[in-house]
Design a protein around this nucleic acid. Sequence first.
DNA 1: TTTTCTTACCAAAGGGTTTTGGTAGAAATA
DNA 2: TATTTCTACCAAAACCCTTTGGTAAGAAAA
Lengths: 336, 336
Amino acid sequence: MTTVSRALNGYDDVSETTRARVIDAAQAAGYRPNPVARRLALGRAEAIGLVLPRSVGDFVDPFFTELLRGMASVFEDANLDLIVTAAPEGPAELRVYRRLVEGRRVDGLIVARTRSHDERIEYLLDQDFPFVCHGRTGSDRPHAYLDMDNEGGFLEATQRLIGLGHRRIALINAPMNLAFAQARLIGYERAHADAGIEIDRTILCESDLNEESGHDIANRLLDFDEPPTAMLCASDFTALGVMRAVKARGLEIGVDVSIIGYDDIPLAQYADPPLTTMHQQIHRGGARVAEMLLARLAGTPPEDLQEVWPPRLVSRATDGPAKPIKTPQEFVEATT
Amino acid sequence: MTTVSRALNGYDDVSETTRARVIDAAQAAGYRPNPVARRLALGRAEAIGLVLPRSVGDFVDPFFTELLRGMASVFEDANLDLIVTAAPEGPAELRVYRRLVEGRRVDGLIVARTRSHDERIEYLLDQDFPFVCHGRTGSDRPHAYLDMDNEGGFLEATQRLIGLGHRRIALINAPMNLAFAQARLIGYERAHADAGIEIDRTILCESDLNEESGHDIANRLLDFDEPPTAMLCASDFTALGVMRAVKARGLEIGVDVSIIGYDDIPLAQYADPPLTTMHQQIHRGGARVAEMLLARLAGTPPEDLQEVWPPRLVSRATDGPAKPIKTPQEFVEATT
DNA sequence: TTTTCTTACCAAAGGGTTTTGGTAGAAATA
DNA sequence: TATTTCTACCAAAACCCTTTGGTAAGAAAA
C-alpha cells in the first residue's frame, strides 16, 4: 500500500519501473484513490471557500461569475475543490465563515468585496487562518490581498474631468462601508486638492451599484439650482442609470453632462453613446488571487502577497469639455 | 464515542438528558466533529458539483450567479458543500465531470445549460449517478430536470407578434446545439403553423447570446430587400444589440421594428424603450433544482422529478402593431 | 574486505468518524 | 411470576488513505 500511495503521488523514492507497474495495475483494476480518505490522512480539506454576498433580491453584477471563473481553473489544477456559498451581509455571514473555518471544511478562503471595517478579516486573522482578500480593508494587521488601485483610478478619472474644464463633478459612489468606495473618495478628493478646487459636499452621493439607483441619484442632482457638469460613477450600471436620467431631460451626454463609469462591462462599449469607464481585469484578478492563496498555503508570509493593480481608463464618448458655467461672475468675466 | 456520535447527529435512541450532557461537554471542550472523518465513515462526499460553462473570453451572463445563489442556501441547510468548477464546452468538460464522479468528490451534480444531444447526461446515466438538469435534453432515458417552458414561451411571444399583425418575424435564436434553442424554434414554428403563416427560413438566425452578435445579425436582417418587421431574440443582451442596430438606422423601435427579448435582466426595464421580454425565475429555479437533487439523493425516482415552469411575458414598449406591408398584392388589396 | 551511504520498498500505526451487532435494565404484557 | 418488548447505551470493526520508522540489497568509499 505504501508503495502504491507513493508511486501514485509522485514521490521520488519509488523506481520508475515500479511506478509504471503501479499505474498500469491501477488502470487495469479501475482504481482511483479515495479523496476523502486522503484528506483524513493528510489532515487537510483540500478545498477553498468563497462566500458570495447575497445582496437583496436581484441579480448580482457579473463581477462574481467572472472572478469565480478566473479562480476555478487555478484551483482545479492544484487539485483543490472550490466551495461556494452565499450569505447576506450581517451576522449570518460571519456564521458561514465560522462554519467553514471551525468545521475544517476548507484550507483557505477568498474574501471578496471587502469592507473598510471588516469583521471577517479580523476573525480570520484571530484564527490565523489562511486567506487572500480581493480588495483591501482598514485592518493594519498584515494580510494578503490583491486590490485594484481604486484611489489611483478615481484620481485619474477626476483629473481627466478637471482637465476638461469641469469644476462641479458629482461623485456617485458605492456604499461607503465598502473599502473600495473609501479609496475612490480619496482619489477624487486628491485630484481636487491638487487642482486647488474646493469640493461641494452636497454632490457626493452613495448608490447601490445598480441602474435604478444611478438614475434616481442623477435626477436628484439635476434638480439642483446649479447641477454638476460631470458625474463620476461607482459602476457602469450606475452610469447607465445616470445616462438614462440625463437623456430623459433632453440633455446631451458628453456635452451638457459628462459621465464616467467603472468596471467596463461588455455593454459599456455599446451604450449610447459608448461609455467612458475604468477597465479592470477581473478574470485575471481571480486567477491571481487563487495563485496567491496557493502561495499562502505553501508558507509565503502575507507581507509578500500584497498586490495593487492599476485600472485602465477606457476613453469613449460620454465625457467631453465642460460647458462654460453660467454663474454671474463668470458670465461677466467671459464677456469682458 | 457511539453515544456522542448518535447524540450529536440527532438519533432518537439517546435520551434527551444524555444528549444535553453531550452537547454541553462538546461545547465546553470546543469539540467540533471532523467532517472529513464523517465522510469517510459514511462513504459520502457530502458535496454537490456544478460546472460553469467557460464560454469564450468575456463575461458570462448573470444567469449563473443567480442560479448559484438560489442553490447555495438549500445545500447549505442540507449540510452539503457546493463545489463549483469551470470548463469550456468540449472534451475537457467531460473530463471535469469524470473527475468529480469517478473521483468520488461529489454525491450529486447539477447540469446546467443542457444541449439537445448532451454527452454529459448520457455519461451520468451510464454511471447511474444522481443529477438534476436545469433544462432538458434529447435523451429519452428518464432523468430529473427542471426546465423553463421555452417552447411555450416562444409560442406565446410569436403569437403576440402575429396578433399584432406581423408576418415576417425574424428568429434570432441561441446556438442550436443548446436544448432550449431547439424548443424555442419549435414554439416559433408552431405559432406560425397555427396561424397558417409560412416561415421564411432566411430570417432564422443563431446568435451568441451577447449584445454584439445581436447587433450584427440585426444589421444583416435589415439589409434584406424585405426586412422582417419583428425580431424575436434569444436573450435580452441580444435584444439590446438588435435595438442598437435598429436605432442606428433611424428606425423606430416598436413602430418600424418590434423586438422581444428573453430573460428579463434588470436592465431590460430601463432600456430605451423598455424591452418587452420573457421573465424566468432563475433564483427560485436554482433553489428548486437543489431541492430536487436532495430528493433524488433521498431515493425519489427521476420520473417523479420533472418540472416545467412557464416563463411570463413582460409587456413593455419594444413591440407594437406591424406596419402594413408594401408588397404589390397587398398594396392593391389595401387600396381597393 | 569492511564500512557507509543510497535506493527501493514495506509493516504498522494513525486519522476521526459511523455502523454493526450487541447488552443491560426497565416497563409492559401474559 | 415469567416472558416479551422497548429504551438507552456501548465495544469493536470498518472506512481508505498517508506517514513514520524502519529493512534489505546494492553501490561507493575507506
